[in-house]
Each structure stands twice: as C-alpha cells, then as structure tokens.
Amino acid sequence: MSVPSHDARRPAGDSRRPPLDDDELPEDDGDFLVRPYAVTRGRTEPRYQLEIEAMVVAAHYDARDLSLLSPECQAILQFCRDWQSVAEISAVLQMPLGVARILIADMTAEGLVRIHQLNHAQGGPDVELLERVLSGLRRL
C-alpha cells in the first residue's frame, strides 16, 4: 500500500522559481490561460506539491458514483487504473501540468486517487535507491 506523501508537500508560498529579469519575461497574448484553469475553479496552486514524476493510481474505483465528478477527474480516474505519473496524466489527457497537479492533489484529498512520491527533503534519491537504479540500468 502506498501512503500519500503528505510529508513531501511544500508550503504554497515556497515557490522555488527564481525571480526573473524583466527582459526574460515571456511575451504572451494572455487569453488562452483562462480555459485551462477554469477546471480548477481558478486556483493556480495545488494543495500540496506534487513532483512531475509523482505516481498516481485510482483508489476505490468501483465504489463511487463517478458521474458527479468533472470530466477531467473522470478521465484521470480512467487513465490511472494502473500507476501513471503526473507527467503522463498531463501529456496523455492533454491538460497543462499545473492543472493536472491541482486536480490530482484535490482527488488525493478526496480519496479518489493515491499518490506515491519520494520525500526529497534530503535532496534527491538516497544511496540505496541509486544502487537499485544502477542495477536496473545494467539489466537493460
């Protein structure tokens, strides 16, 4: 059983993006943005930080009346019958990464999906995991 990695969350204000110089600000026509975030009811920060590679799987799949869920959440549940990463959910279901993160965090809180991600407080995978990755690569 995986436990949702609540310990891996970061506070919403903990934005690790560095400030940008003005000349680096992307030009943008600014009107396509409204639609993606409409499905998150305007929120742009997830309840907790999901890594792009965090794994997601549907929980209690048959036990709920799914028709009440938004089409996006239904699609995520359908897609995550087996473990999928946040990146794959975003790519295959064609929703921006930020939107996928918010929806998945919400669905985790509601018990619709389970997530599994490493706690990176120590900075990257530990020695044991790296050794496992190495032996996996050597078998390829």
């Binding site: 506070p11 934005s15 940008l20 600000l25 064609q94 990464l97 930020g98």
Partner: peptide, 18 residues
Amino acid sequence: PLTTEAVMTPASDGLDDL
C-alpha cells in the same frame, strides 16, 4: 516520448507573503 505542456507563471513570488 510524450510532451507535457506546463503553463508557467513566471511572475509568481519568491516570498511567503501570499
């Protein structure tokens, strides 16, 4: 290879003041 599209908010703060 898949492509994921991130909508970025470069102006988001680096501060704790929400």
